[in-house]
Design a protein around this nucleic acid. Structure first.
Lengths: 190, 190
DNA sequence: TATTGTTATACTCTATAACTATA
DNA sequence: TATAGTTATAGAGTATAACAATA
């Protein structure tokens, strides 16, 4: 049993260990269109997803913003004035982690905690003008990145890709255990 | 400047911070520019890649094998008898990390270090029978997972997906800096 | 002097749980 | 008694550098 959410703000599950072809390490460079006869969708998805995240982190770096900080600014922007608890809950950030994130962004003047006279335990989060400004810039960076990523795709291909991805993604949201693809079944025949 | 490789055995770049639609947290999206169903390829790739990795870790867990350990076993299997240094180099595992990984797998009797009389600094890595056995089982689990992931796709759709993914992936292997999509450009117009 | 493998150290990240102040 | 936010603590993971043995 997993304890709780293992969603966005939690530790990454780590990389995929390589393609399924038995001996890909010899010979030529790991070029994307290498001569492998079998290419795993799982491997490809995992490594491209990894690369997409890494690159996004890189292009966001000049704004001195981590992806998760971007996400938090977005979360505040989308629910301005809500409590730290509520916003953290939506992003599945544990309370104790929220403190550090908000501290850092508040210290940079990007958002602020406001006291609520009606419930003096809570802190309402608001973006500052600087925060809104930076969030706008981060958005435009993210949009440029998105355009760049899909620059070689026609509009129809882009839709096709998203459709196929969602169909694969739908397989993943099924609960584990009802699948044949667990190592338990491999253990069974030992 | 990055120090060196940030490939498979290094810390994950972390999750994508959410889709690009400005206000996705409320009930229905009152998004002004991207009316409704704008879905970012970057977001989708990142989150599905994440989910694929996480699930793979889960289905491998009954074998008491982490994805990276699976990768290392594969690496040894593909280059049996080569030095720890050489195999680690191919998988881009820093030397000091190799020690711990090999220690753990050797302690479980899955691989062994053999001394090389011709160069007594080096350790040649070999799989044991148990290691080969476990690797086989891990492979069959990975193949079942792959089949499950793509169960809703026809053979042609599968090829199409891989093709589209590789075309997006090709955008990522370009060096950063030559892109328009860096936050530097957003900084420029402040 | 360079290289292979090892060990040691320091640092980051984060999960957990105590703690406070309110309610 | 329960909740919002904070602080403290401990543990995992890992990058870096020092190190020993060998070339």
């Amino acid at each position: 049993m997993k304890t709780a959410s293992d969603a966005e703000f939690h530790r990454s599950p780590g990389p995929w260990p390589g393609d399924l072809a038995p001996a890909p390490l010899e010979g030529t460079a790991p070029s994307p269109e290498s001569s492998g006869p079998f290419r795993s969708v799982g491997f490809t998805l995992s490594s491209i997803g990894h690369a997409v995240s890494r690159r996004f982190r890189e292009i966001l770096a000049p704004l001195e913003l981590e992806p998760r900080e971007f996400a938090l600014l977005r979360g505040v922007s989308a629910a301005e004035g809500q409590t730290q608890h509520a916003i953290g809950g939506r992003l599945q950030i544990p309370p104790s982690r929220m403190v550090a994130f908000v501290d850092a962004l508040e210290a940079r003047g990007l958002l602020e905690r406001r006291l609520n006279p009606e419930d003096r335990r809570t802190r309402a989060l608001h973006l500052t003008d600087a925060g809104r400004d930076l969030l706008d810039r981060a958005f435009s960076v993210a949009l440029a990145y998105e355009r760049d990523l899909t620059a070689d795709l026609g509009a129809d291909e882009r839709e096709q890709l998203l459709d196929l991805l969602h169909r694969v993604g739908a397989r993943l949201s099924l609960r584990p255990g009802v699948h044949a693809a667990t190592a338990d079944s491999a253990l069974a025949d030992e």
